[in-house]
């Protein structure tokens, strides 16, 4: 499984990170080195092994259905780079 320039472009797009053209090729090289290194896992036969689903052996904690939070719009939007009337604002989105 080798990563090429186009794969880096696609993955960077999925991850929403702008990548200048000249960095695609070097990044493909870096990813390939790391992926080649992690592929040593293939030496282990894991056909009879379950993947780990949780590190701690406890059951999922649940809360009761009660309103205990909210009513703090000013704090929610306080750190926003842009907004109005307790809304967040982004460039117009076309659906």
């Amino acid at each position: 499984m080798s990563v090429d320039k186009e794969t880096v472009r696609r993955v960077a797009r999925l991850a929403r990170i702008a990548f200048p053209e000249e960095r695609l090729e070097p990044m493909a090289g870096e990813l390939n080195r790391i992926l080649a290194w992690v592929e040593q896992l293939n030496a282990v036969d894991t056909s009879m092994v379950e993947p780990m689903t949780s590190v701690v052996k406890v059951s999922l904690k649940m809360r009761e259905d009660a309103v205990t939070d909210g009513a703090k719009a000013p704090e929610v939007v306080r750190n926003a780079p842009s907004g109005e009337d307790n809304y967040f604002a982004v460039p117009k989105v076309v659906e």
């Binding site: 992690v38 896992l41 293939n42 282990v44 894991t46 092994v49 379950e50 993947p51 780990m52």
Partner: peptide, 10 residues
């Protein structure tokens, strides 16, 4: 991902 999580089990 699944392979790595299996290694974690081991």
């Amino acid at each position: 991902y699944i392979k790595a999580q299996k290694l974690r089990t081991l």
